[in-house]
């Protein structure tokens, strides 16, 4: 058997720019994910970090089985994991969503929402013990108090706990956490992050943790992958990444992470990246990052080859001509 729980090879997800009936004409695509490969072990937390438009959320949704990939392969425990193939049971791969208010049906009680996976997949209701245990696992106690409530009666942090409960209800092996704390208040984030870490340890979950916040990534990950415009530009063990970050974009992300100490903020002369995050509709040829890269050279230019992920140090991959 393979050592990897999840294997992703050359994943692409393109969206056509307009839908509906078309007669001829040139189709443009949004290349949300444009050739992404990575693996995840059992019990490992891999963070997928990037800014808006980099494709991290789309990657997560394809990998969890919500969308079909346009190209590429996904293997789960060695089996073809595409939704159409239907070889991976639904319960194995689940997702924690970003906005708890949007992720819960406003007209269903907490009990109904949590019961859903039981009815849909096990064809029965959740037993009292199962429901109580689930609520305790996510820290919503006493269970009787919460089970008959509606989402609008709960706070943001409580709702997010319900969303986590929905994900782990049937004991999945793999969870995609899509910016799970980004819409929560700062003082509540730690509660949810610690909850996820505890659940990960308790159930030996593998987690693909999607975030734009490197500080959060540092506190939860075993390994880190940085995405830019649909591709992974750097991938390494967490501590290795933060000590020896190599790709210019990853360096920029790290540099942009401000400090809490006002003195520190004044002293560090951080030169922000120029330019804006480009659109995934027509990514630049050559290296996608060249337009904003402070270290770009001739090899990175338009018309040249795109850099591939190369292992520069043990377990530390970078896609950059300059680093070579």
């Amino acid at each position: 058997m393979t050592e990897w729980l999840l294997e992703v090879r050359g994943l692409k997800k393109y969206y056509p720019l307009s839908t509906g009936l078309h007669i001829g004409g040139h189709r443009e695509f949004v290349k949300a994910v444009d050739g992404v490969s990575f693996n995840v072990r059992e019990g490992e937390v891999l963070s997928l970090v990037g800014e808006s438009g980099c494709g991290k959320t789309t990657t997560g949704k394809v990998v969890v089985g919500l969308y079909e990939p346009s190209e590429g392969n996904i293997f789960f425990r060695g089996e073809d994991a595409s939704p159409l193939a239907g070889r991976v049971p639904r319960r194995e791969r689940q997702m924690v969503f970003q906005d708890p208010t949007a992720a819960l049906n406003p007209r269903k009680t907490i009990f109904d929402s949590l019961n859903r996976p039981f009815r849909a997949q096990l064809k029965r209701d959740a037993s009292n013990e199962e429901m109580h245990q689930l609520m305790e696992d996510v820290g919503l106690v006493p269970p009787e108090y919460f089970l008959h409530k509606y989402p609008h009666e709960l706070s943001g942090g409580q709702k997010q706990r319900v969303v986590v409960a929905q994900a782990i209800a049937l004991k999945p092996s793999f969870v995609v956490a899509d910016e799970p704390v980004s819409s929560l208040d700062l003082s509540i984030r730690g509660q949810i992050l610690n909850l996820l870490k505890d659940l990960q340890r308790k159930f030996n979950l593998s987690i693909l943790f999607i975030t734009h916040d490197l500080a959060v990534a540092r506190h939860v990950s075993d390994r880190v992958a940085i995405m830019y415009l649909g591709k992974i530009v750097e991938l390494a063990d967490s501590e290795e990444f933060f000590t020896n970050v190599m790709h210019p974009y990853a360096q920029a992300l790290l540099g942009a992470a401000l400090k809490a100490d006002p003195k520190a903020n004044r002293m560090t002369e951080y030169k922000p990246l120029v330019g804006d995050v480009p659109s995934p509709i027509n990514p630049p040829s050559g290296c996608r990052f060249r337009a904003r890269c402070p270290a770009a050279g001739v090899k990175c230019n338009k018309g040249e080859l795109e850099p591939e992920l190369v292992e520069f140090r043990p377990g530390h991959y970078v896609a950059c001509h300059i680093c070579a």
Partner: peptide, 20 residues
């Protein structure tokens, strides 16, 4: 305390108990 520093990892992410 809840502000995370990307340069320093701590085991338990701090938070304030309870809700607003």
């Amino acid at each position: 305390n809840c502000v995370l520093d990307v340069n320093r990892k701590i085991a338990r992410v701090p938070s304030i108990e309870g809700y607003p």
